[in-house]
Design a protein around this nucleic acid. Structure first.
Lengths: 277, 277
DNA sequence: GCAATAGTGTCTATAAGACACTATCCG
DNA sequence: CGGATAGTGTCTTATAGACACTATTGC
């Protein structure tokens, strides 16, 4: 090979199969909130390895798509959700994390309003469920499926029937999760808690950016932090950081449910600002 | 295939070569500080693609190492530096980022004291240089090689001779960098500026954790933020966040150079706390 | 009126920024 | 003494947390 080779010549002669290569997958952590609780979408594996264990959804990154595009595709396949923003969490590359072969996983966080989630729990190819994320000390957590909760009520799979007949809630702990998924989820929760302080990620959980109340928004903060914020201090914080700076504006209408009607707000800037890094 | 297959049988029958796979590389951003300026290690490519362009070092992740281990190995090969902490920055996966083939890069940031860097600039396989990171508005930047600076003085390559004969400094801008490396560096600078506020990453630039002055530490903050901190406010900040909490402790000896001798400090906790996430 | 929810006001402690001042070395 | 660098003090404003209070609805 001459040193005076042009780039074109070089590329023609280049053999891209010289080295063995790992598989690359995109994993997605689909979080949602209901009231002031945080939920995570998990699927039950129907095949080896970790058959019957619960895992976060994911799939191989194909040659003609970015990792993010793969995550978006997977997300759509699992939940019919489109047009959401994803945040890259971390890339996991332990050599033995998958017993089949070398797999490197790029994990993404996606935050979806519960109302937009059409998770395909009826799909008999696999069980998909929203697990309550029950925070414990030190960023540890449990994933809980409440007996006869309304959230996964539509599910009519064998698994659901079994669960309904049991005496207690169904609880997943570290050892019950497939692969290194406990570690991934733990990191995701930590990341969300970190980012909620200085970014607007909480707004990505709102069902309607044109019509939300400060209480709805506070519940989202409470869900992620798993603690109840002081009402007065929270309002002051949102008004200073978002209303005074023109990101959110009051609507004319009020939300009437029980108690005093609530002022509703709308996000006044480009929607793409939500969840921008 | 029977549904009653055991995991062992499954793994035996599994064919891991079903899908085409991308190559995976680990790229490292080696930052260092001199006085209150930030420098980045770049290498000049000796082969296609982007022959003669400047790039951040990197290499393929092999099948028996994690991405982080690959980064550590690369780092050692380039700079003889060992025992440093790396921070995973981001994984870049655009389909066409490398014209040879599909390459996904996991980028790592490493912060090294200048004194510990033995960068192999004499190695005639490639030029390696420390570029001054010259910040501009909006997280943009230029990489500058000053004519006849002392930092890269040991270099005797053809490139250096050429540079010495020129009239002006050698400046790299976005278009002068290989692949998507401008974007990567930009993100790295942003990340460091974000993390320096609430983490102890600045300490990882200190040459001697058992003997440093607050002025040395302030210079590191200035280098990353590319602005000069107020001396009094900075001291108050460090004393509150680090001395009062017992992370750093005053030494008995003083550092005597010019002017009033400076109190030296040492990091009093486990060293592994430096740069922990 | 009462339960329920929305929303305000106030007090305190802490933190961030601007900036003037003092201290201690060398030569 | 003066130049150089280290280190202190003070004033102002912004922010965070605790917590008591008022407002507006339906029934």
């Amino acid at each position: 090979m001459s040193k005076q080779q042009t780039e074109k010549e070089f590329l023609k002669a280049y053999n891209p199969n010289k080295y063995e290569r790992p598989s690359v997958t995109a994993d997605i952590l689909v979080f949602t909130t209901i009231k002031d609780e945080l939920y995570l979408l998990m699927i039950q594996r129907k095949s080896h390895p970790y058959k019957d264990c619960w895992a976060i959804p994911g799939g191989f990154v194909s040659m003609d798509e970015t990792a993010k595009e793969a995550a978006i595709r997977e997300l759509y396949e699992e939940t019919s959700v489109k047009d959401v923003c994803l945040e890259q969490l971390y890339t996991f590359s332990k050599v033995d994390r998958d017993p089949r072969m070398r797999v490197i996983s790029i994990a993404y966080i996606v935050m979806v309003p519960f109302e937009k989630l059409q998770f395909k729990s009826g799909d008999d190819a696999k069980n998909a469920r929203l697990f309550l994320v029950k925070a414990q000390a030190n960023n540890e957590f449990e994933l809980v499926l409440k007996k006869k909760d309304k959230i996964n009520a539509k599910c009519t799979t064998d698994f659901q029937k079994e669960l309904d007949e049991k005496e207690e809630d169904f609880v997943l702990r570290e050892k019950d999760l497939a692969f290194d998924h406990y570690e991934i989820i733990k990191m995701a929760i930590k990341r969300m808690r970190g980012k909620i302080k200085y970014s607007n990620i909480a707004f990505s959980f709102l069902n309607d950016l044109d019509d939300f109340t400060l209480t709805e928004l506070r519940y989202i903060y409470d869900a992620i932090n798993s603690q109840k914020a002081d009402i007065g201090n929270f309002r002051r914080f949102i008004k200073r950081e978002y209303e005074q700076k023109g990101f959110i504006v009051q609507n004319n209408s009020k939300r009437i449910e029980r108690g005093r009607p609530a002022t509703t707000y709308n996000w006044a800037r480009e929607r793409s600002l939500i969840f921008d890094e």
